[in-house]
Design a binder for these strands. Sequence first.
DNA 1: GAGGGAATTCAACAATAGGTGAATTCAACG
DNA 2: CGTTGAATTCACCTATTGTTGAATTCCCTC
Lengths: 203, 203
Amino acid sequence: MDSSRDPTRRSGRRPGQTQTREAITTAARRLFAEAGYDRATIRGIATAAGVDPALVVHYFGSKETLFREVTKLPPGVADTIAHLADGPRESVGRRLAEVVIASLENPASRDIILARIRSASTHPDAAALVRQTVEQDVLRLAANLDVDQPEVRATLVGSTIVGTAFARYIVGVEPLASLDAAALVDALAPTLQQYLTGEIGVA
Amino acid sequence: MDSSRDPTRRSGRRPGQTQTREAITTAARRLFAEAGYDRATIRGIATAAGVDPALVVHYFGSKETLFREVTKLPPGVADTIAHLADGPRESVGRRLAEVVIASLENPASRDIILARIRSASTHPDAAALVRQTVEQDVLRLAANLDVDQPEVRATLVGSTIVGTAFARYIVGVEPLASLDAAALVDALAPTLQQYLTGEIGVA
DNA sequence: GAGGGAATTCAACAATAGGTGAATTCAACG
DNA sequence: CGTTGAATTCACCTATTGTTGAATTCCCTC
């Protein structure tokens, strides 16, 4: 309280702006995650943030750039995934499953991931984001493991992750949607381990 | 040619109508599959079918019912899947993979499947279609195999199939998108076999 | 308390969408 | 030929959306 005396309120970003931007960002993430790029409207986001629609575009320029800003992955997750290769090789599948499910269970990161996946169906830019994450970040993990055909393995892992998120959170297929996180990790771990270090059919 | 003398042209459905309905159906499937429910417009479908937009709604009533009509699965596929349990148990994963990939490679059925999956992100009815297919049709297969936790197994299988379709055809992640069908079956078979008849972590 | 600049709102535009109802073409039949 | 009924088109309405530019409020500084 008494933020009115905040000394940073001079020329830089002031609490007012920061706070409003934050509110818009959070609301936009939630709506993009729940409705996808097309159905999430600037008006809806503005209302959810308690703000005029014009203010949203005033801060973010356009719906397109708003989406891009808001669905950026926090820095470090890519490295976290890639460095799973440093641990014991025989448990890399399980550890990857743990990281993925944890990200999906945390509401903040879940909104970012679901916004991307849900929007990928109709919004080419969102599809590109998903594609890059698999082709770059997951690929780094596979490459670090020194296995054959790392690209194919990365995409199989990616499709498993995307499929799980899609089925559990977007389609809501039961009982997968209600399964607790630990059980889901148990089910996913062997599959990911197989894709990462096992034999894959292709020659 | 000379369809003008067709005797069925009396009171029942005439070639003219049938032909036009068919053209609209095909165009609608393609556009729903390529763009999803929201971005596929009645106008676009009508143009693709070489027809006036009003004719589309004249025949199908509304965009909603058009979508429902056009994304119906051909009768028999549900049974085909369920009866995979009749064959040798140790190859059920591979045979399911073959059926699924074949359906996705055939342009006609692919459009139906992709229209459903792509629209599921933003259109609740489409999500319900996907959900039902997994919770009913795939579940029947699992149940016919007499394994424990058939529901969990069905959803894991479903998420694998949906994830593969999503990654390969919608996101277009490489090299998965360019992989030939046989190689894809090879990669998927062990996973599906594991989910259907193997140990799954959950107690 | 007056000035100024940012934060915020208001009103409106142009584009696009699904849907409707009247009008029109068309082909078969008496 | 002229009627009939379906097939098809036309013009139009309403709702929504992204976006814009002017107006207004707000808060700090002098």
